[in-house]
Design a protein around this nucleic acid. Sequence first.
RNA 1: GCGGACGUGGCGAAACGGUAGACGCAGCAGACUUAAAAUCUGCUCCUCGAAUGAGGGUGAGGGUUCGAGUCCCUCCGUCCGCACCA
Length: 853
Amino acid sequence: MSRYNFRESEAKWQQRWSERGCFDAKHDPARPKYYVLEMFPYPSGKLHVGHVRNYTMGDLVARYRRAQGYNVLHPMGWDAFGLPAENAAIAGGIHPAVWTRENIATMRAQLQRMGFAYDWSREIATCHPQYYRHEQKMFLDFLAKDLAYRRESWVNWDPVENTVLANEQVIEGCGWRSGALVEKRLLSQWNLRITRYSDELLDALKGLDRWPERVRLMQENWIGRSEGARVKWVLAGRDATIEVFTTRPDTLYGAAFIALSPHHPLSEGLAKGDSALAEFIAECDRMGTSEEAIETADKRGYRTGIEAIHPLDKTRRVPVYVANFVLMEYGTGAIFGCPAHDQRDLDFARKYKLPVVPVVLPPKEDPATFSISDTAYVEDGTLFNSSFLNGLSVPDAKRTVGERLEASGAGARTIAYRLRDWGVSRQRYWGCPIPVIHCPDCGIVPVPEDDLPVELPMDVDFDQPGNPLDRHRTWKHVACPYCNSPSQRETDTFDTFFESSWYFLRFCSARAPVAFERDAAQYWMPVDQYIGGVEHAVLHLLYSRFFMRALKECGYLDLDEPFAGLFTQGMVCHQTYQNTEGEWLFPEEVAIDPAGRITDGSGRPVIAGRNEKMSKSKKNVVGLDAIVDTYGADTARLYLLSDSPPERDLEWTEKGIEGIWRYVSRLWRLVSEPPAALPPPGTAIPGGLSVELTAIRRSTHKTIAAVTDDIDKFRFNRAVARIRELTNALEGVSGDAPAVGAVLREGIEAATLMLGPMMPHLAEEMWRDLGHTTLVTETPWPQADAELARDEQVTIAVQVNGKLRATLDLPRDTAANEVEEAALALPQISRLLDGKPPRKVVIVPNRIVSVVA
RNA sequence: GCGGACGUGGCGAAACGGUAGACGCAGCAGACUUAAAAUCUGCUCCUCGAAUGAGGGUGAGGGUUCGAGUCCCUCCGUCCGCACCA
């Protein structure tokens, strides 16, 4: 029995595809295009099987769409700037550029071994000056349109590493590497004005009907639109006002206090003459911003002694507090508290013994007796204790009070967003330099376009903590391009999400002297199918949507949304193992001894832990190279597609991959030793087939229709199951008549073509063995013949009182009265009816007869 | 606290409101082997039964329907996102 030699075969077909340029995308407006993209990887080292699941899905889509006649763009590149490269430099003395280049070479070779249908002529690496020069230009354009600006903001500062940390890099208030307690620091940082598009980004989510509902919801919550009002409160005895933001202007008559953020200008002003307040503010700053710090901290306030005059009733006054729970970054940095109808305000009021006056009466409550105890009432009701608002519902009261505030100039209805502008400055070396110069005379000036790119210097050292650009002897010292005074370059670099916010545009014309050619982008964009992890739901996926709008405003192109279709795939998981000391073990270090115990190979016991996402730190990774060496790329690909629905997590098991390998061998045997002799390609199938052969043909055409539908709907696991059903049936075909071979050939060819996007190498090998000289890669997707797929005989279920009692084989589309007659005549049915006529009979054509006794 | 998703055999999972468990993994039995591996064939939701068969079964409870894994309500559990957002 011959065995499929995947080693030879996979290398051979990869070479054929590459020589023929099968996957090079050509700009051709006459043809319908299809842009498939998987989120490009960070070149972290080596790929493990967990990494390649989404590339396998993307490749399936790309090859499938190509077979359907689309002009497919399917590129690959490298998100090549980032912290791990610098860490490698610090730890191993290797330059980040070298480390990154080597990793890219390794990972590119791994992807090529998998046989992915990428257009490698469009490969990009974001750390290349020919890439990042364009985003420096974009930044200058953003500056000109006021989409980029510099502002002081509070950041996470690691005092040991002397650098800013992202929120994700702060673990329980400490730096993830140094372990040092992270401080809040006020630093001058570049920001991108994403908030200019808050409303647009929110509204356009509705149109993204091929995005997962979950991701749209996450973005919606992240943008966090709240309708409310700004209300001005005049301070008694002072020539000043406080503006608060509220979503409940209807409860204004229930106001019991004003609370200011510790960073509110008024708080800071007052603190200058009030050392106790200054101390209170300092204490608030010391409080961490971690989840548990917020969870456990009490709501504390400092009473300033100032009173504010009620905007709707000049005779009423409320005390002004500075409170630790009020955020300067949201709304106006000041609130009014209505204890009766907000739980947090109620807790604060009880603590500081402030009055609790209900102003919304719940239905069926008596206004004379209704009072608030320890739970605020937040539902709808009828306004009372509220002057001109009395008797109104909450929505009506909101509108009425809004109109009144606007008429008197004391406030206005407005909308607040949770979304903040995007801080893009990083005190890092391995990133794109921010193209500005600090001149003592001209201030901060942009680098002239002709001087771009501002390239990273290569001669840097990582001996000391902090940003090497800052310490570089010459790089940062330049003359001001406008007045020639000695000046300094900005030494911060961009957040690496800057690069990934537009790389999909670069792929449209990857070697263009501009960021991207407008024509190419207008043809290829938007990405028709984007595939990646859900962890980017509000980061990369939101930034990219913002970039499209910002680039449109700067005249780069005329499109809003980058990704028309989005699919978020599940993770690949594997069992974890720990020894008794709690150290993690790689799967290959673990063995099962004859007694069935799990050991570490030298006999010491090992504890099998949870099934978790493959990660280096828990060592539950399966190397890609080892799998491809043992089973081949196609086997790995089919396993990743077949075992779980694509959106769900997949458990990688040795048994599972072995099962796929057995299937690969069976497929190989199906063509190399078919159960009946096959006629040459193109042999017509004779008429007058036997019942058995008709059934085989029907399976073939049904399978084509079902698999096509399944792939369209991203149900890859089901598509694989259908193909297996078909090949199982084909294995059972036998006979000597010429029609047998012809029908068998039709089935095997269809299966081969359908397997093409999943197991491209094996499919090519099978196709050639079937006698074809063409490539599967260049062969159209098979077409189902609806006529041939239709059943002539159907099995109809017969229920009595909802319970299945019998089945009935009848010709398709048998008349209802005949079906009913046949069903009632069945002995099992007539026995149950006991001679009485049924009360009711429901007939669903070709499916079911439901008898009510 | 707010928002969302999910709950089906030993396991991964299928199932336009219409025969629950397709397809596969694991397991059991058999064939081929001196033997093992590989391969092939059959069985495999639970209970009763030698068997035709009968009864039960999709986290729990209720409802709608001729008919509910699927739709509606209540509850339990798991997972995810956001979280002092006024």
